[in-house]
Nucleic acid binder design. Structure first.
Lengths: 205, 205
DNA sequence: TCAATTGGGGACGCAGGCGTCTCTTAATCA
DNA sequence: TGATTAAGAGACGCCTGCGTCCCCAATTGA
């Protein structure tokens, strides 16, 4: 709501710095207003610039959003790698807590909310939603599947019938919480999800 | 897309009949365009009427949508009661299949998609979303909880630590499917959810 | 230090959608 | 059957937001 830039005598930005400010503004607007209600004036104002620099880079609103998303997804700004291959310490429970916790915190961040807004636009803009699914959702699910398979190999849990399906249980519960309550679950709530739902499905009891 | 009313010489409707046609049009538009992009001209056109009858009943778009939602939720047009108290036949699995199946088919219907669109507007219009949660989501969760408790009483499953949380597992998986694939799961997919996720969490093995 | 770029700011025309209003005509009721 | 009410159709003014364009100033590089 407030000016993102308090410094009136701020130096005039250009190039990559300005571009990043614009992307941040896109994410912020997207997360507050959604895609349909997002408007160029607001993005320019929040980035502390005019509309011309926006249209100099992208030809319209759709391209601008796609550009911001693409950049965020390809540079891992949204999927922070969690030190890449997670540290195989503490066993399955610890790994589940880390992965679901990171999912929840992503959902709280501006880029995360922006991605969510795009998935909600699935029917109107399938290509936007698909990009998010492919670059954001799938990798996380794959990482969860890997964690589960490693636990099976360690003999920690019996092999599940469908790793694909089981890997979705945790994320589904996190998502459900967001949809029902309007915000991602806390660490304590994630612990309940892990201990009372995910681990039991996996056969730890 | 096509005219909902092929009959050119159709008699002029009024009162309750017309009102229902308008509500149907609201749901259809809401499910296709979402709340933000819904516009009065389209609703009027789809209902085969003019804007005047709309504004004669409601003072603006928001009230019109709220009105349609309220009516649908209060008359059970979206929550079809499933012969009210489900028929306690076939045990827990059968009941889960019925409840999740009905959830999936609701999500496929126009009113169901409309409700979904409103939940997605949670941040912009909390009162709309809350109505859906209270009148649509909560009753279904309550019904699931009842089914689980009955199964416990029958000795079919051990008492879970948190019925509240467990009751959300099935719906969460159905929702997750919708979000990831853009459509509700089929009966076969629901069967997998029930057999490989929900029943195992409940301790049937 | 001067020329070339690019940013900040905003005016402009256009399109679409809101909510009002008018006009004609069908349905309803006394 | 005549009077009354409300429907169908759409014109209208207004506002908002898109995308273009212009001006001036700050930054950069030769």
């Amino acid at each position: 709501m407030v000016e993102d830039l308090a410094d009136q005598t701020r130096t005039r930005r250009r190039g990559a710095v300005l571009e990043q400010a614009i992307r941040d503004a896109v994410f912020a607007e997207l997360s507050e207003s959604g895609y349909a209600a997002l408007n160029m004036e607001a993005v320019a104002a929040r980035a502390g610039t005019g509309k011309a620099p926006l249209y100099r880079r992208w030809s319209n609103k759709r391209d601008m959003v796609v550009g911001a998303i693409d950049q965020a997804l390809s540079t891992g700004a949204v999927l922070p790698e969690e030190d890449d291959q997670s540290p195989e310490t503490g066993g399955l429970r610890a790994e589940l807590m880390i992965l679901l916790g990171s999912m929840a915190s992503t959902m709280r961040s501006a880029p995360g909310r922006a991605m969510h807004a795009l998935i909600e636009e699935r029917h109107r803009h399938p290509e936007l939603a698909q990009a998010v699914i492919t670059h954001l959702i799938q990798p996380r699910l794959a990482r969860l599947a890997v964690a589960i398979r490693r636990a099976v190999n360690r003999g920690e849990i019996p092999p599940p019938v469908s790793v694909e399906l089981i890997a979705r249980v945790g994320p589904a519960m996190v998502l459900q919480h967001e949809l029902e309550h309007g915000q991602a679950p806390t660490t304590a709530e994630i612990a309940d999800i892990v201990d009372l739902v995910v681990l039991p499905v996996l056969g730890t009891r």
